[in-house]
């Protein structure tokens, strides 16, 4: 029995349409290594990944270049563990992390372009639990535990740090040490 051409065509179109409904997923990389890896955070451009790994039993932030899998150097995060809740700006110029200094938890931002560290003690006796940096680095959202409740507050960083905008990619890559 011969199937009419238009029916085959309809079947083909339906199949293509149905395929489009499914999520097409490409996995860039699976497991990076055998250690526990937690708290992933992508840079805005999707090229860098910050995560928390066990380093000598201490939760420590690590920055990876997803294009080649390399670990990128961080100047200010070899101590003040445990680290938690990393967050990256658009090009990964800024990395923000909650860290420990003596008996206090505080937010630390490293500018990977200049090597500068910005340390932000939290006003009052509040304990920061999570943070999120705006893609351009202009704002920081902090989650606190306060009086048995979770609170989120936003802070304006525009007077403290230069913005990390998408157009800054070329400038950053030419001066950073990661490509050298």
């Amino acid at each position: 029995m011969r199937i009419p051409n238009y029916k085959i065509l309809i079947c083909l179109i339906s199949c293509i349409g149905l395929c489009g409904c499914f999520s097409r997923v490409d996995r860039l990389q699976g497991q990076f290594d055998i250690r526990n890896q937690e708290d992933p955070a992508l840079s805005g451009d999707g090229t860098k990944l910050a995560l928390i790994v066990d380093y000598k039993g201490r939760p420590t932030v690590e920055l990876r270049d997803l294009r080649n899998g390399q670990i990128l150097p961080l100047r200010h995060f070899s101590r003040n563990q445990p680290h938690s809740s990393p967050s990256l700006s658009w090009n990964g110029r800024y990395i923000a992390v909650i860290a420990q200094r003596r008996n206090r938890r505080l937010a630390i931002i490293e500018d990977r372009l200049t090597g500068r560290r910005y340390q932000f003690p939290i006003p009052g006796d509040r304990i920061p639990v999570r943070l999120s940096l705006a893609p351009d680095g202009s704002q920081l959202a902090l989650q606190f535990a306060e009086n048995g409740q979770w609170r989120v507050e936003l802070f304006d960083l525009r007077q403290k740090i230069e913005l990390d905008l998408p157009s800054g990619i070329g400038l950053f890559q030419s001066t950073s040490d990661e490509d050298s």
Binding site: L28, Q37, E38, D39, G46
Partner: peptide
């Protein structure tokens, strides 16, 4: 990520935390 097309996920597999990047 900023485009909403790349995501990084913390996943538990066999009692261990992994991070997986999905495009």
């Amino acid at each position: 990520d900023s485009s909403g097309r790349v995501l990084a996920v913390q996943v538990s597999r066999s009692g261990k935390w992994d991070v997986e990047v999905i495009r």
